[in-house]
Simulated scan of single mutants.
Amino acid sequence: MAWLARGSSRLYGLMVLSAVVVLVADQVTKFWAVAALSGGERLAVIPPLIHFRLLYNAGAAFSTGTGVTWVFTLAAAAAVIGVLYIARRLASAGWAFGLGALLGGAVSHLGDRLFREPGFARGHVVDFIDYGPFVGNVADIALFCACVAMMVLSLRGVPLAGAPREESA
């Protein structure tokens, strides 16, 4: 775990904890949606704004790219690896939470792509929160919030990473 010692282990742990919360919340709600909702049924939550409706998304946002699900699998895997690498030298709690939400959403979508039907690396993401023209899930909300948080942190000049420390002999 020498790679972890290069940055703040407390902030890295905060990021991982945030990711686990997003991952668990997303997967639990997807499990509920698959068990409780049947195809096409709309359950009013806050009419007319929000309904629950079960869909399986083979593509990306707005169901684009449904024929190249494997590309989204690779992109999610690259995002997970990238976040874990970049976060080694976290310098703020804001970035830890933002990257944690990004990591949790990416890991959850990667899990769907790898292990859901129709098969390995071609799986469909479970979407069930219907916002009118859009249908998503908890991971999508976390990814959106992560992007907003990272834009705000960047605009405010909050550094992502601390200066690298010299390795001791």
Rank of each mutant, 00 (worst) to 15 (best):
L74C: 12
T29M: 11
Y12P: 01
V148F: 11
V45F: 06
V135T: 15
M150K: 00
A58P: 15
L43Y: 10
A25S: 15
R165T: 12
A91V: 02
L49W: 15
S18N: 08
I50Y: 04
F52K: 00
A87T: 09
L103K: 07
R122A: 13
A121D: 07
V80C: 14
C145D: 05
A78L: 14
G136S: 09
G157S: 02
Y85S: 11
A169H: 11
M1C: 11
V68T: 09
V16Y: 06
A106K: 04
R156Y: 01
L153H: 00
F62S: 07
A106C: 02
G59C: 06
W32Y: 03
Y131N: 07
A121G: 10
G123Y: 05
L11W: 07
V107Q: 03
M15V: 05
G7I: 07
S108D: 05
V80D: 05
E41A: 13
A142H: 02
A101R: 02
G67N: 10
P159N: 02
F31A: 14
A58L: 14
A5Y: 10
G82K: 02
F128Y: 12
G157N: 01
E117P: 05
A163M: 09
P164W: 06
A93M: 11
F31S: 13
A146H: 00
R42F: 01
E41Q: 15
P118G: 09
G59M: 00
E167S: 13
A61S: 11
A87R: 00
V83L: 09
R116F: 14
A149C: 08
L4E: 10
A33E: 06
Y85G: 10
L143K: 09
L84K: 10
V125A: 05
G94F: 04
A60V: 08
L114D: 11
S108N: 10
G59E: 05
I86K: 13
P118M: 06
M150F: 07
F31W: 14
R116C: 08
S9A: 13
W70G: 03
F144H: 07
S92V: 03
L153T: 08
L4T: 12
V80Y: 06
L43C: 09
G65A: 03
G119M: 11
A101S: 12
A142R: 00
H51D: 12
A76W: 02
A33W: 04
C147L: 13
S38R: 15
L55P: 00
E41H: 12
K30A: 09
A101I: 04
M151C: 13
G98P: 06
L37P: 01
P133Q: 04
H109N: 15
R88W: 04
M151F: 13
L43H: 12
